[in-house]
Design a protein around this nucleic acid. Structure first.
Length: 355
DNA sequence: AAGTCGGGGGG
DNA sequence: CCCCCAGACTT
């Protein structure tokens, strides 16, 4: 790179983005709805993962009005497997906010955007910059890493004061011209994602190499400082797969808070005892089979899942109000947690082989 | 300030 | 196994 040291941070970044940045992402459009959707999907989620989900979601809900009018189950079904399901619930609510509070007109100011459910300061700034060319700065994981390295900042990422300093620094670096904001903002993300990577940063092709203090001090590996890892508690879960005479599987919609909120799951219990009591009421106490246990890791929990299975006789009464019987071929229409998707996928194949 | 929310990429 | 990812929200 031949950037002169006198050239501003923003000018080098903009020039670099235009030449070497990403230009083929499906959400690089002027439509604020699509920008917003992509920003929500990309929260704590890598581009490669979102690529599969984004087009299906846009096809099903092409604009704010379509999303606002949708059923939550339909929204969650298209989010299933992506994780952090509060994002989908908030996205749905926010679409309705735009209809009711903003007359269906997408808000353009950061302060207004931050009123939308699930939209914090950084996401609001991204929408404002990309869709409306507003001079607002993002501060995501990529930007924090770039700033901590270029300016050799070794603050504690959990420290609120340090966080404020990063926001102030990011704001001070904004380009003067508002119409540079899309390229500049994309450049921040692209640099962090493709060059100034968490491990093995590619300093040889970095437009900031000659001003990067971490590089000069040989500290790119230690900056930014790592967060202290939280302990992950184990959580036993007991699932019961009930099948009726038609081969349908019993699911229920989980409550609106907690793990997998609003998604559909098998009857789920905290202990084997609870599961057996339920099976007894369902009249299948003697028919319960034990399936192979498996574990599933969330950010803050290690789920130890023990699945059971039983076939339900035709005339048995189910001691449960809010269940729904689902044909195996219709499972794709339901928002299922990833581990349940995997488990039922295998179970259904087994049943097909023998049924 | 710490905890809650999923799932996957990549070393 | 580990840490992190286009974070926001609750406690």
């Amino acid at each position: 790179m031949s950037s002169q040291p006198t050239q501003s941070f923003s000018q080098r970044l903009i020039a670099w983005q235009k030449q070497h940045g990403r230009h083929d992402l499906p959400w690089q459009v002027a439509d604020p709805y699509r920008v917003w959707l992509s920003e929500i999907m990309l929260q704590q989620t890598q581009v490669a993962t979102v690529r599969d989900y984004y087009p299906r979601f846009v096809a099903a809900f092409p604009d704010v009005a379509a999303l606002a009018a949708a059923e939550q189950d339909a929204v969650l079904a298209l989010w299933a497997g992506l994780g952090y399901y509060s994002r989908a619930r908030n996205l749905h609510k926010a679409a309705q906010q735009i209809i009711s509070d903003f007359n269906g007109e997408f808000p353009q100011q950061r302060s207004q955007l931050e009123q939308l459910c699930g939209v914090g300061r950084s996401t609001a700034a991204a929408i404002a910059a990309f869709a409306f060319q507003q001079r607002e700065t993002i501060l995501d994981g990529n930007v924090k890493r770039v700033l901590c390295r270029v300016f050799a900042l070794d603050g504690n990422p959990a420290d609120k004061t340090f966080e404020k300093q990063l926001w102030a620094l990011a704001e001070s670096l904004l380009p003067a011209q508002a119409d540079d904001m899309p390229a500049y903002t994309q450049g921040l993300m692209d640099l962090g994602a493709t060059v100034c990577k968490r491990s093995r940063p590619d300093c040889a092709v970095c437009p900031m190499a000659d001003i990067c203090q971490a590089k000069a001090q040989n500290r790119t590996a230690e900056l930014p400082r790592k967060k202290t890892a939280a302990a992950v508690a184990e959580m036993p879960l007991f699932w019961l797969q009930l099948r009726n005479a038609q081969g349908q599987i019993l699911l229920h919609k989980r409550p609106q808070r907690g793990i997998w909120a609003g998604l559909y799951c098998l009857p789920c219990f905290d202990s084997a005892d609870e599961m057996h009591r339920f099976a007894e009421k369902a009249g299948v106490a003697g028919a319960v089979r034990t399936d192979t246990p498996f574990s599933h890791r969330l950010t803050h929990r290690l789920l130890q899942i023990q699945p059971f299975a039983a076939d339900l006789p035709d005339d048995s009464a189910l001691p449960w109000a809010d269940g729904v019987w689902v044909n195996p071929q219709d499972l794709r229409d339901y928002a299922l947690p990833k581990p349940l998707m995997r488990y039922l996928g295998e179970a259904v194949r087994q049943a097909d082989l023998f049924g």
